[in-house]
Amino acid sequence: MNTPLRLSPIHDLLQSLPGNWQAINGMPVLTVSPPTTSPLILTDRSCLTRFGVKGANAADWLASQGLTIPDRPNSWCPLPNPSAGIIARLGLSEFLIEDSLSSRLAPQLAMACQTPPAKVYPVLRQDLAIALSGPATHELLQQTCNLNFRALILADRPILLTSLIGVVVTLLPGEHNGHPFYRLWCDGTFGNYLWQTLVAIATEFGGTITNVEL
């Protein structure tokens, strides 16, 4: 048996869940259909391809690769069509590019950055990437993070670098079908702890775990 070359940081925790496994971007992904009325849904999106870069010239370099750069620190914008991926500006001069299921921009950027120009520093991303969605999302956040999410203006496309249950996370707040839809990235080595803790809280709300791509 050959162990897949890409495994999600929480791959082993998902073994006990029912569902079908398929390979996406070389990573085994569990697919489950969530009940539509679940108050809280947790989704593992680690299989998506992503690329990180930082430095004083990172913005210019990304623009030279055809991307539109978020104009303000701590904001995001969508990748050029037809992709539904995102480019996030983390703080002043660091960027995270994450593809959707149908795009492969990140690996191309990684290739192009193998010999980076001056003041462009590639950042290897091996995050646990998850999504929190459903009507109970804000309640979960209120129990785990000391930021006022309800006061955010989604139209500003904010990015938040903060701490959640003691773990450094990057958050991209959003909405889907009228309910909150939050994307979260954290260091994969905290992945098991973060996932298990959020699952325990979600279970109290009657939440579900899925790996369906929304």
Partner: peptide, 14 residues
Amino acid sequence: GRSFTPKRQTPLHS
């Protein structure tokens, strides 16, 4: 409270 105590694990933990 729930007492959140982060634990860090390598990918080989299991």
